[in-house]
Amino acid sequence: MAAGSETKHNFLEMTEIRKSFGDMTVLHDVSLSVSQGEVICIIGPSGCGKSTFLRTANWLTPADGGEVRLAGELVGGVPDARSVSTQTKELNALRARVGMVFQNFNVWPHLSVLENVVCPQMVVAKRRRGEAEKQALAALAEVGLDDKKSEWPDNLSGGQKQRLAIARVLAMDPVLVLMDEPTSALDPELVSGVLNVLKRLAQKGMTMIIVTHELGFASSVADRVVFMEEGRIVEEGAPDVILQTPKTERLKLFLEKLNITAFKPNSDSAGHPTMDSGS
């Protein structure tokens, strides 16, 4: 990529993203700027537009207004009435470098664990099988699934499926990973396994935007927490500032509702693994 090195700041630049469904405006000119290596956690009440906002970052949901740039390159934008096509080769190439992890895993049930990770590498990154398998095994090892490579996804637990989805993304050597509530669909005892993988990724310097309700995780891993409500970013800042000393009444209410009045950073009050268990 051309503008790679000098754009350390503004690695991902989302500018005045606007989105409506019918006559309901879901995002009101939301802007977010992410530096390389930064981990951002987005929190906010249900229906406030977190998923929609995240999905505009790789133009999976094309916005109605605003633009997204990754390392200076236009991912998607609405410069005029002719909106950018969602099917261009350039967009696919960009998407291949922006991983996305979904709440419902969306692993491919017709392919084995290994093939799930191999397939996009061969089809999109044009790697040969040998190389793709090598990368796949490395990615599977990273998420602790190397012993499951010949398994079918249907035989995996939710936590394993999600780790497979993460491995599928990692094998593409992403420069940015978007995650939409990666642990929300998991049984409580499976959450920590996935969060530990995410912590390791964060420690390795992966740039990530994670929509999550896991405040303990956000507080220990995020560089910045973004609080959204009703299609706007209401507050953002360092996790302890945001979670301990909320400025706005709305954020206070939200945090109270999440029942973390007794919450202290690193206290592991919500039953999540402490930071050390991740390493």
């Binding site: 790789n58 999976l60 696919n92 998407r95 291949a96 419902n104 969306n106 491919w108 996009p120 999109v124």
Partner: peptide
């Protein structure tokens, strides 16, 4: 979600 996962990985058409 199966379409979305594929598209987010750069598969299309």
């Amino acid at each position: 979600g199966q379409f979305e996962a594929a598209r987010s990985l750069g598969l299309s058409g």
